[in-house]
Amino acid sequence: MYEVLRDEIRNARVPGGTQLKAAHLAERLGVSITPVREALRRLEKDRLVSYQSHRGATVIDLSDEALLEFYNVRAVVEGLGARLAAARITPGQLAELRSLHGQMVADAAERRLVGLGELSRRLHLAIADIGGPAFLGQHAHAIRDSHPVPAAASLWLDAEQAEAHLAEHARLLDALEAGEGEAAERIMIAHVRASGAYRVGGPVGD
């Protein structure tokens, strides 16, 4: 039950601001109300839902200030991941990242933009996992999961933004290949913060 609801929220099938009525959820999912209430309590601990008097559980919809904080935290963690990855990345891992980037470039060229957001997420998290396989990668995943952005609501749907971000990814991969940790960290931080600025200034995000 918890996993089902968490997946629906993370993939924005249940968008921010949605009220979650335990009785309605139990009926929709064909279960008793007890596991639904337990799932909602766990989702509150994950900061995916909040409780308000007389309203019950509501899927959290971040304010602009909170969104900027989210992207700044991402920038710090993923930037450190890139810095550490530059010192430990293997040829095989680099080849996998370049293959993923190549897929994104090909999709963008064919205007297959909808899936680019998820591919970008995979690339970012793969770099964090390479840089910090013991702890940092797990934190990067948890931060991303705390505020899901659906593939259908991504800055990658903007062809001009997609082209600019792909160029940044290419620079990042070149820095990783060269073992230039400081450059990789700098590129990643600027890249993520730019996504946050776009998210606050526009209707969508990375």
Score class of each variant (00 low, 15 high):
2 Y>D: 10
3 E>A: 14
3 E>Y: 08
5 L>W: 06
5 L>Y: 03
7 D>K: 10
8 E>P: 01
10 R>Y: 09
11 N>G: 03
11 N>Y: 01
12 A>Y: 07
13 R>H: 14
14 V>K: 01
15 P>E: 10
15 P>W: 11
15 P>V: 09
16 G>R: 10
17 G>I: 05
18 T>I: 01
20 L>K: 02
22 A>S: 09
23 A>T: 11
23 A>K: 09
24 H>K: 15
28 R>A: 15
29 L>D: 07
30 G>N: 13
31 V>S: 13
32 S>Q: 11
33 I>R: 15
34 T>L: 07
34 T>F: 08
37 R>W: 03
37 R>Q: 07
38 E>T: 10
40 L>W: 01
41 R>P: 00
43 L>S: 00
46 D>L: 04
48 L>D: 02
51 Y>F: 09
51 Y>G: 00
52 Q>F: 04
54 H>E: 08
56 G>N: 02
56 G>H: 02
58 T>C: 10
59 V>F: 12
60 I>V: 15
60 I>D: 05
60 I>P: 05
61 D>S: 14
64 D>E: 11
64 D>V: 00
66 A>L: 10
68 L>K: 13
70 F>W: 14
70 F>M: 11
76 V>G: 01
80 L>F: 02
80 L>K: 04
80 L>M: 08
80 L>G: 00
80 L>E: 08
80 L>W: 01
81 G>W: 02
82 A>E: 02
84 L>V: 01
84 L>M: 08
86 A>P: 06
90 T>S: 14
90 T>E: 11
91 P>N: 09
92 G>N: 04
93 Q>N: 00
95 A>E: 12
96 E>T: 08
97 L>W: 02
102 G>M: 10
106 A>C: 08
111 R>F: 05
115 G>P: 12
116 L>P: 03
119 L>G: 02
120 S>R: 06
120 S>I: 00
123 L>A: 03
124 H>A: 04
125 L>R: 06
126 A>M: 07
128 A>N: 06
132 G>L: 06
134 A>K: 14
134 A>Y: 12
135 F>V: 15
136 L>G: 11
136 L>Y: 09
137 G>I: 07
137 G>S: 06
138 Q>P: 00
140 A>Y: 03
144 R>P: 01
146 S>A: 15
147 H>V: 12
147 H>A: 14
147 H>Y: 15
150 P>E: 04
151 A>S: 14
152 A>C: 09
155 L>A: 12
155 L>D: 13
156 W>V: 00
157 L>E: 04
161 Q>G: 01
162 A>M: 03
162 A>W: 01
164 A>T: 04
167 A>E: 15
167 A>L: 14
169 H>K: 07
171 R>T: 10
171 R>M: 13
172 L>S: 04
174 D>N: 10
176 L>G: 03
179 G>L: 06
183 A>M: 13
184 A>D: 12
184 A>T: 11
187 I>S: 07
188 M>W: 06
188 M>V: 11
189 I>N: 05
189 I>K: 14
191 H>S: 05
191 H>N: 08
192 V>Q: 06
193 R>I: 13
195 S>Q: 06
196 G>W: 03
196 G>C: 04
198 Y>K: 07
199 R>H: 08
199 R>L: 00
200 V>D: 10
200 V>Y: 06
205 G>L: 03
205 G>F: 08
